[in-house]
Design a protein around this nucleic acid. Sequence first.
DNA 1: TAGCTGAGTATGGAAAAGTAAACTCAGATG
DNA 2: CATCTGAGTTTACTTTTCCATACTCAGCTA
Lengths: 169, 169
Amino acid sequence: MDATTEALQDAGVDPRLDRDTSNCSIARTLEVVGEKWTILILREVWYGSSRFSDFERVLGCPRNLLSARLRMLVEEGVLATETYKEPGSRSRPKYVITPKGVDLVPAVMGLLQWGDRYRADPEGPAMLSRHRGCGARVDAQIRCDQGHAVQPEDIESIPGPAFRLRPAE
Amino acid sequence: MDATTEALQDAGVDPRLDRDTSNCSIARTLEVVGEKWTILILREVWYGSSRFSDFERVLGCPRNLLSARLRMLVEEGVLATETYKEPGSRSRPKYVITPKGVDLVPAVMGLLQWGDRYRADPEGPAMLSRHRGCGARVDAQIRCDQGHAVQPEDIESIPGPAFRLRPAE
DNA sequence: TAGCTGAGTATGGAAAAGTAAACTCAGATG
DNA sequence: CATCTGAGTTTACTTTTCCATACTCAGCTA
C-alpha cells in the first residue's frame, strides 16, 4: 500500500470504498443499456430485425416502452433511423445499428456466452455464433495490448485519470 | 435461404421473428444480472469489497435491495458466503466471487470498455485495467476457436440445438 | 445488563414497468 | 372518398421495483 492510501485510511477514508462511483464506465454504460428490453432490442437488431413491428412481434414488448427505448437508443447514437419502402406502401422508418452500437457486441457476446454455459436448455443453446470466415465457434475473451490472453485474476484495476473520491456527505 | 425457412415463410412464419426467445442465452443471463445494482455489486466484489457494509457504503444502494441481490447472487452460485472475524467482534458473513461469477468478467469488461470509449469524463476513465503480467492495457474482444480475432460483422448467428418457434398464440 | 456494531428485515410511499385498448397520421388501394 | 397499414402516441389501470427510514437481532464490550 502506498503512503497516500495509508494516510487516507488513517483519516477513515478508503479509496476503494470512498471513491466516487458516479463516473464509473460500467455504471455509465448501464445508463444506456441497463433498462429492461434495451439489450434485447439490440439482440434483435443484431439478428436482423429493423422495424417497429418486428421488435414488437419477436419481443412481445409493450409498444410504449418499445417506442421509448428505440428513441433513446437513437438519441444515444447506438441505433440510427433510415427509411425503407415496400412496393405499394409509403416510406417507413427502420432502425439500423451504428458503429457505436456495434461496439456493444463484445459485451453482449459476453452475456450470451455466460448464458450458453450456465443457463442453456439441456440440449444446448438456442442460437450458435460462428466465424463467417472459418466456421469456428466464436466467444468473448479478454486480451491485453500485447496480444496475451488474460485470465480474469490477472487483471489489475488501478485508479485512472478521472478517479476521484466521493464528496463527503 | 434454405427450403425449410422458405416453406415457413410461405405460411406466414418467419423463423427470425417467430422464434421462441424465452430460452435465449442473453435473456437467461439478464434474469440473473439484469436487475439494477447486480452488476455494480459484482464490480465491487471484483474491486475487492466483500462485506455488506462495504457494498452499502460504496454503492449507496438501499439495504433491502442489497440484501435481496446478494442473496440471489449466492443462490445462483455467482457469489458464495464465507465468514470473517475482526478481533473483538463476532464472526460475520462476507461475499466472495465463485468461478461462475468470474465467468461474467468478459461481459462486464465489455460494458466497461464501451463506457470508457463513449461515456468517460474528458480526462479519461475512472479506473484502468492492465495485465498483471506485462502491464499492458486489457480489453474484451471476440475470437473464434481457431484463434482469429473476429469483427462483429463476421459473426454468423445460426439456429442451435434448442432453437424452436414460439407456440402459436 | 446496557450499549455498540454489522448485518440484516419490515414498511410505506414513489417511480417505473406491464397491460390493454383507443386514437392519430400519412400515404397507398379499391 | 372510404378503407387499410405500419408506426407510432395517449390514456387508464395494475403490478412490480425502487428508495428511505425504522426496526430487529446476535454477540462482544464496558
